[in-house]
Design a protein around this nucleic acid. Structure first.
Lengths: 351, 351
DNA sequence: CTGTTAGCGCCTTCAG
DNA sequence: CTGAAGGCGCTAACAG
């Protein structure tokens, strides 16, 4: 079935190159304390024997694990998580580090993680991706003997990399208000685990933009309200449920802001099946700039997900290698921008 | 910035529990060689001190790394890769193993992986996800002292978990032929790295189904041809390029089979923008049953991606724990099925 | 059931 | 620049 020949050991390499194991170790790690010629010879011997250093043994000897953890909530296959993972992985890999995933799909996973703290002594740093923790959980992470980097949330005494969700959502909402929309619904999903709390901040942004408009133009007020859907995931259910609530209420919106592109992309076909044209009857604004957003011609607020992942990984590397003092910007805010596509237009005169 | 208190050691736990470190070790691993009461006492002490075993040290002592590698090509954020990763991760995690990603985005990464074989001595088993290797690369993996499980390809002397791409595509194509389609294009993407070779087998399936029809009903022949697009990714470019080639040729298809749902989802809006209605003017058939397929009302051939990931992970676990003999089914073929939605209909009479 | 002893494979002194 | 020796934290084998 599968080969199981014993792999070469460092001694084999040392013997083949005619040196000691210390020399092999140094040569393989490109230590400056070694002559180019023996280094070359050793590396060839290692290649010839398919020898690779045991990371476990190196870790034990040096005290550096060469591994950085990524704590994620929800499925790894959501666009956000997968994009962050992809970017963080690439950055760590360039630095010769591995990425260890700690994924918590449900409350059980989550309590388990916080009860056992498996990251303790097993990674050099931990990135906590975009989800809200309970106060005791923050406390728990602070007790960790490993530096933590928060992604998409600011945490007082830790490093963090994030966007301004409130400002971003306000920006998008202003765009709708400026187009003339006065009935703007915000669609969010119920979040069973208390995860993805960015959604709440985005709602604040929507309300903020509407309030601001109403203060400056009280004679032409806009209203906004929130519709919370009891479903998650990228399927069509979210959209269908949202449509029901959107059309079943007292007022029907002329524009909808969604917590994410995934929700928007689910909503658009659902609206269409309900007989509403997008954008003619309803404008739809997304959040993320998911790769798929262009397929729906979706106007959206872009957040630099890959850059968030990279920045978090870089911060984690810096913290693990050089400590907190070495981190120039403990709190890094990354820019968002409005990406104009075809899903948002001036509301119909009738409206 | 971040706490860096020294974490508790095993000696601390031993002292607190009033036992030796061996006992601590045994208690923490739920060894049966220990009395419930001391186990309890030790575990409490460990919890109190936030002590976690060092996986690196355990690995060194036992020779078992507790880590399984996943070699992937292309972005981790594609639906396929992310879904496999998610499922494999979940399975490994239940078994207390970690997942180590080896992702090769380009040829450089790839040669690097095969040159250095970083998986050697660093994982207990390796899963190679869905991509075609060069003969020398297969040979290289066979030299590895670690068992390999291939996902979505059969490899003679290794374990593998896969679907029958040919039969699956033929099934979908038969559906179109049965609806009455006689001009069926297959849309695939150029694959710079030689990755995702399933696409070629799917084309074979399309051709096979058409041939079969033509043999049984020579008086009413169908034709098929392949359109290869020079782009990849989930954006709209793929679809736009495909539409150009689809409409620019001698014959215009009444139905299109795509190598994946991602291509189909890119194609549908592109067709619509070109003035063609889906499915009225053109039927579109996907492959995968991506979560997003329902949003496009896409008829598609479902492959059990999560189950592929799980099965591969289980096989990897079995191989690493009990060796090749313990694997009941070295070659596991998983079923596919046609998922009927609205994107495929009877062709217009005019056609 | 529990403690003692040795060693996993590497890296880091310290000598040369 | 290179070799010898010890120890990183844990577990397996052995004794009790």
């Amino acid at each position: 079935m599968t080969t199981t020949a014993a792999p070469a050991t460092m001694d084999d390499v040392a013997a083949l190159a005619g040196v000691s194991t210390s020399t092999v170790s140094r040569a393989l790690r490109d230590s400056p304390l070694i002559s180019p010629s023996t280094r070359e010879r050793v590396q060839q011997a290692a290649a010839q024997l398919d020898f690779a250093l045991s990371r476990a043994a190196s870790a034990l000897a040096t005290g550096r694990l060469g591994r950085i953890g990524l704590l994620v909530s929800g499925a790894l296959s959501t666009w956000f998580n997968a994009s962050v993972l992809d970017a963080a992985y690439a950055t760590l890999r360039e630095a010769g580090q591995e990425l260890v995933i700690y994924s918590t799909k449900d409350d059980a996973d989550r309590s388990d993680f916080f009860a056992r703290l498996p990251a303790q002594r097993n990674v050099d740093a931990l990135i906590v991706a975009s989800f809200q923790l309970r106060p005791e959980e923050y406390a728990r992470l602070a007790e960790l003997s490993v530096p933590v980097v928060y992604l998409n949330q600011q945490v007082e005494k830790s490093a963090s990399v994030f966007i301004d969700d409130v400002a971003a959502a306000a920006l998008g909402t202003r765009h709708l208000v400026n187009l003339g929309h006065r009935r703007i619904a915000y669609v969010t999903t119920r979040d069973p685990e208390g995860f993805t709390f960015s959604a709440a901040r985005r709602r604040d942004g929507v309300e903020q933009a509407v309030d601001q408009h109403n203060r400056s133009r009280p004679e032409d007020p806009a209203t906004t309200w929130t519709v919370t859907v009891d479903a998650t995931g990228g399927g069509i259910e979210v959209g269908q449920l949202a449509v029901g609530q959107l059309l079943g209420g007292d007022t029907v919106p002329t524009a909808v802001v969604t917590e994410s592109d995934e929700v928007a992309m689910s909503l658009i076909p659902a609206l269409q099946r309900a007989g509403l044209r997008v954008p003619t009857d309803v404008s739809v604004l997304g959040f993320d700039d998911n790769v798929l957003a262009p397929l729906f011609d979706l106007t959206t607020i872009a957040q630099p997900v890959a850059e968030l992942g990279r920045a978090a990984a870089r911060a984690a590397l810096t913290l693990s290698l050089h400590g907190a003092e070495a981190l120039e910007q403990p709190h890094q805010q990354l820019p968002t921008r409005l990406v104009l596509r075809g899903s948002t237009v001036v509301p119909r005169p009738a409206a």
